[in-house]
Design a protein around this nucleic acid. Sequence first.
DNA 1: AGTACGTTAACGCAGCGTAATTGTGA
DNA 2: CTCACAATTACGCTGCGTTAACGTAC
Lengths: 137, 137
Amino acid sequence: MDGSDLIGIREMRAAFGVTARALRHYEAKGLIAPLRVGEKRLYGRRDRARLTLILRGRRFGFGLEEIAELLALYDLGDGQATQLSLTLARAQERRAALEEQRADLDAVIAELDAQIETVRDMLARAPQETSPTAAAN
Amino acid sequence: MDGSDLIGIREMRAAFGVTARALRHYEAKGLIAPLRVGEKRLYGRRDRARLTLILRGRRFGFGLEEIAELLALYDLGDGQATQLSLTLARAQERRAALEEQRADLDAVIAELDAQIETVRDMLARAPQETSPTAAAN
DNA sequence: AGTACGTTAACGCAGCGTAATTGTGA
DNA sequence: CTCACAATTACGCTGCGTTAACGTAC
């Protein structure tokens, strides 16, 4: 009851849409640990479950190191309240950070709009005094 | 009529809130070119004007290289229509990119919220079945 | 023997942070 | 002599992309 249906790196790429390089990188960082048959890597259920979490974490903006922490938690407490609440805490911190990013982004867009307006005005106010340089290809 | 009231690197740090390292970095990239008195750098009006544009550009998400292009434009056509419209074009491209970032960010936040909900549910549904492992220091 | 896929280094990139070491003038 | 500030290398960091140079199995 634990065949774990192993798959190769190729199938992993296809299944998750990641490059082999990324997979090896995650492995080098200790986030996943596929079996080895000679030189070749074989990924099992566990690896796939972890990769899912890794990719989710990346989308949320977690760094690989922080993701490693969370994965370690999942190993220790298997669905236990302690790890869940810590995960929740991390997620909320991230959410706050993302919210801040969004605010900054909005501000930057607004500022950029203002700048664009200014440039447009300048173009509208003096669009004819162009030197020979402007006509050249 | 061109004293340009030169200031040192210390004053620059204070005036713009950037580190000396950043200033030297911009210089190494050819974005600014302070005078030299022996080894010491002296920044004039021109440098300050450029730094202002550099920092604005950075806030907008432009890379240093792209900023260098824009600065070059300001040098060539001094307020001319050609450079203004090119600047406008760049700015609009940037705006679009920022807008995309914002959309992605919103999606990520929404997904994270969903995940947070899930974890909350798990915590609410089974908050007592903690093993000895959880109590240990 | 060719080809298709896999493996291990190891450098590249962006934008500085962060030492480490060495002037230099007061 | 000794501060205090400045300057010059030059490596570190993040998350992989991208050659380069070799196995290996078919």
